[in-house]
Design a binder for these strands. Sequence first.
DNA 1: TGACAGGGGGTGT
DNA 2: ACACCCCCTGTC
Length: 296
Amino acid sequence: MGETHAVITPGWTGWQPLALSPTPNAAVLAEIIDGGQAFRWERQGDLWTGQWDGHIASLRRGERGQLEWGAPSAATGPALLRYLDGNGDPQALADSLPWRSDAHLARCLAAFPGLRILRQPFGETLLGFLCSATKQIVQIKQMMALLARRHGAGVTGNRNRLPTWDEIAAIPEAELRGCLLGFRARYIHQTAQHLAAHPGWLEETEILPYAEAKARLVTLPGVGEKVADCVLLFGAGRLEAFPVDVWILKTMAARYGLDGWKPAQVAQFGRAHFGPLAGLAQQYLFAWERAEARRD
DNA sequence: TGACAGGGGGTGT
DNA sequence: ACACCCCCTGTC
């Protein structure tokens, strides 16, 4: 990592208890904030520091295993709770997945109790997944960190925030390429131009029903079905979105016998098999496969 | 410790 | 099917 990140030390709000139920253990917490949903969290030892929507917050586990947060601003408290979907009930959601008739899903749920889908800012989520094509999490995080460092410095407040879409629209494509974006720079540049030319487009899209919102998102350059589903799942709380990428293709082939199925077929299977919370199920499947990959 | 392939959580043509 | 970019990772 050539770039340094904002280093947070206790002292601003002080450490406050974070009311998440159930309290995620260390592995589940890592899956929630650094498992491919978000790309703006960094770990320093036992301390996680993350950024979204101009906020900076740190998370840690206290001496009795309880979760604690700290931030430069007390206003971050409610924002953090929303970001983590703190009012949601992951136990109840998981219980309504078809684990009773799906042994693999059942062991995934048992292995990652309290796994959550984040409620990230819609625009930032779009930016993150426009960066994601053929990139792994560590590389996407580098792109986002560079975008923030070079182009997100605001007049006040967080000086390492991501640039807004309006700000990105004013950045020459060549400078975007300098942020390790590669061919994604053109997509991001063109998407920014589209959004600048259509004020309110993102806000309207976010509140549309799932199918309509997805249909609109895929009209953006660089946004296909997979990226659109990720944006709606992780940035708009649409748990029915079921993003199909090469990893879910492999997982479904290995665990559900779907060898040779095409993405559209796997998507249809996923919706039919997992139901209206298919996106949550997908996140459990990912967590399982990642843990297994680390075991090797 | 440094060079060198190989491949990467997709989209557009 | 293949190009698009170019950084990470593993390997020698």
